[in-house]
Structures are given as C-alpha cells and as structure tokens.
Design a protein around this nucleic acid. Structure first.
Length: 272
DNA sequence: GCTTACCTGTCG
DNA sequence: CGACAGGTAAGC
C-alpha cells in the first residue's frame, strides 16, 4: 500500500495530533506485529512515554519519544488510524496504542506484513531496523548525490534500482512507474545505458511525482487510508500505473509487463 | 539476479 | 480455481 507519499501524508497528519501525548498500556491483538523487543517487554515499556515529534525515512515512520523511538512500517496493507475515543474498527486490528487522555493510535493490517519496533537509542534503531536503508529520496538526496550513487550502481535495470531501498528510500511500485513515465525512460533500460541528461531528468521527475503524490493525499489503489481513515486522491492522476490498455495522451496504448518481478506499466511510445 | 515466503482478499 | 496485489527478507 504505502510508499513515501502515503507515509508522509500520515506523518504530517499525526505529528500535530500526537505531540505531547502520553502512552497508556498497549493491547497486542497480534503480538507478532512487534518486531522489537519481545511483546511483553514492549507492552511493559511503553506506558508513560511521551511523544516529541514524528520523522520519516523512506517508508519508515519514526515516532520520537522522550525516551526511545517507536518505528512503524506499513508494508502492503498496514494502516495507522488515530481515534479520539474508544470507538474503533475491529476488523484487522493488530495493535492498540491508547493514550492516557483516552484517544488512541490503532494499527490495522489485513495481510499482517507490517511491523512496529520500540528502540531505546538512535544507534539501536539503525542497527535493528534501518540497517539496509539508503537516504530518503525526497529529503536527503540532492542531484549530485543521486548521480554519484547511480554511477556506483551501473548493473541491472533502472526500475529494479529505483525499487531498491538500499539505493535510496521511498519509491515503490506505483511511483516508480510514474517517475519513469515522466522522464520518458523505459523501465527495462539498463542503468549503465542512461545518459547524464536522462539521469537528471529522472531525478527531477522523482521529486515532482513524490511532491504531487503528497499534495493529492497519496494513492488509494485499494487499501490505503490516511490517519483519519480518508482516501487519497492521486489514483485519479496516475499517468500509467493500473492503466493497461488505456490511452496515453500521445495516443498509444499503455502496456503492462513484468520488470524486477513486479507488474510494470509504461507507454511504449513515450518511454525509450 | 530470480523465486519463494510471509498473509488475506479480490478479480477474471 | 489460479493469478495477482502498494513490501521486503531470505533462499538458491
């Protein structure tokens, strides 16, 4: 479900709502959702801790506490939902994180892939959770660094590289296809064959697409909901993703193929 | 690299 | 019924 724009929309919503909140005792309806520490220690450790602010690297959301950091990754179908009172969605509820003022943050996840981690220090966060994660592609990667990283990763196809969170963090399957469309690059192109002008155009396209995704509240293709349960709107502005056999503005039909093991949409006429 | 596994649901 | 789905880790 969520790629960088969806996680950023949730971050922007939650930060003002949660700042200063004090945790009460969590309810782990599915203990295996907790990646670290063990579920009993997680439950015992959280009460009394205070939320300071919320950060994001790629698709990871980091809730900074007065002591430690609570990190969330939504994987495919995770949903962080803020509620003012005890009323809540029961279906797919995996973890309830109530606050002492009776509001709560609920973690719901149909497919159960997502995880929550509580770590005590930044070093532990890096070690336990963000070990293989590259720089955030929207906030921590300038054009020069992007070109430099590209020059060191010449093997393989451009789509596979953009999806690699160790290269740069944040792009997923939908936004990768949209970025390659905007930059006119075939997803099957080999990285080594890209001209510098193409790499620059790709970088600018990435920033533009991610900004637009955030501006329109993220993409709800199926399951994505923001922290208040509302749908995104960017699915109505996608150029290629999910649009097989529909018309590109150029008049050609959008095609679907498989690249890097993922369903891939592109315009055979606009992308070379 | 590619495939499989993790899960549940939907679509054809 | 099989194929596929916004993600990622682990296995050849």
């Amino acid at each position: 479900m969520p790629e960088l724009p969806e996680v950023e929309v949730i971050r922007r919503e939650l930060e003002p709502l949660l700042k200063g909140k004090v945790f009460a005792e969590p309810a782990l309806h599915m203990p295996s959702t907790i990646g670290h520490p063990n579920p009993d220690l997680f439950t015992a450790s959280l009460p009394g801790r205070i939320i300071k602010n919320i950060n994001r690297t790629g698709k990871y959301l980091m809730i900074k506490l007065d002591r430690g950091i609570l990190t969330v990754h939504l994987r495919m179908t995770g949903n962080l939902l803020y509620v003012e009172n005890s009323a809540f969605e029961k279906r797919f509820l995996r973890v309830s994180l109530p606050f002492i003022d009776c509001s709560a943050l609920h973690y719901l996840d149909m497919r159960r892939f997502g995880r929550l981690w509580l770590t005590e220090t930044e070093a532990e966060l890096k070690e336990m959770v963000l070990k293989r994660i590259g720089p955030d592609i929207l906030n921590d990667l300038c054009l020069e660094d992007f070109l430099e990283l590209l020059s060191r990763r010449q093997r393989g196809r451009i789509k596979a590289l953009l999806l690699d969170q160790g290269f740069a963090a944040g792009l997923g399957n939908i936004y990768t296809d949209e970025c390659l469309y905007r930059s006119g690059i075939d997803p099957n192109r080999r990285v080594q064959d890209l001209k510098e002008s193409e790499a620059e155009k790709l970088y600018q396209s990435i920033l533009g697409v991610l900004d637009d995704g955030i501006k329109y509240g993220g993409t709800t293709f199926r399951d994505y909901r923001n922290a208040r349960g509302a749908l995104g709107d960017f699915q109505n502005r996608l150029a290629v993703y999910g649009r097989k056999d529909e018309l590109c503005h150029c008049g050609a039909f959008i095609a679907k193929t498989k690249v890097a093991g993922r369903g891939t949409y592109y315009c055979p006429r606009c992308q070379k």
